[in-house]
């Protein structure tokens, strides 16, 4: 692996990404939001978010928007992950560790099925 990354490398990546985008219909993007307030961070929210990012990178998942937000207001359920599929209601999950995050990604974000075991009101 070359240690110095050039912007030319990035330009190539951009061109590839553009080609991919043109092949796809504009079906809307899925949003995954992780609460990153103090309580969330202390409860492991960074690791939860990292698990989601790792999965996007390794499994080559385009068109997913990952967001972080401040305190969601449900301290006892941190880390909290919210999934919003295009045109659907927001679904919240509580006490999400990296393993649960991967299951939510697989079953809900990719499969479209809410993971009822982890779901919370909010």
């Amino acid at each position: 692996m070359p240690s110095v990354k050039s912007l030319d490398d990035l330009k190539k990546i951009r061109e590839e990404a553009l080609k991919k985008q043109q092949l796809k219909e504009t079906s809307g993007k899925t949003e995954v939001v992780v609460g990153m307030g103090t309580v969330g961070i202390a409860a492991g929210a960074r690791e939860t978010l990292k698990a989601i990012l790792d999965m996007i990178e390794k499994d080559n998942l385009s068109d997913i928007i990952v967001r972080q937000t401040g305190n969601i207001g449900l301290d006892s359920y941190e880390p909290i992950v919210q999934v919003i599929l295009p045109g659907e209601e927001k679904v919240s999950y509580g006490k999400v560790n990296p393993e649960m995050a991967r299951r939510i990604m697989k079953e809900h974000v990719l499969g479209g099925e809410i993971v009822k075991d982890f779901q919370i009101e909010g």
Binding site: K5, R14, E16, A17, Q21, E57, N60, S62
Partner: peptide, 24 residues
């Protein structure tokens, strides 16, 4: 900033971009 300018609209969450930034 230079990364975002070069990407010109392609999101950071694009898997190959994410890998590029993470490795960098």
């Amino acid at each position: 900033q230079p990364i975002k300018e070069t990407l010109d609209g392609i999101p950071l969450s694009e898997p190959a971009v994410m890998r590029y930034i993470r490795e960098m």
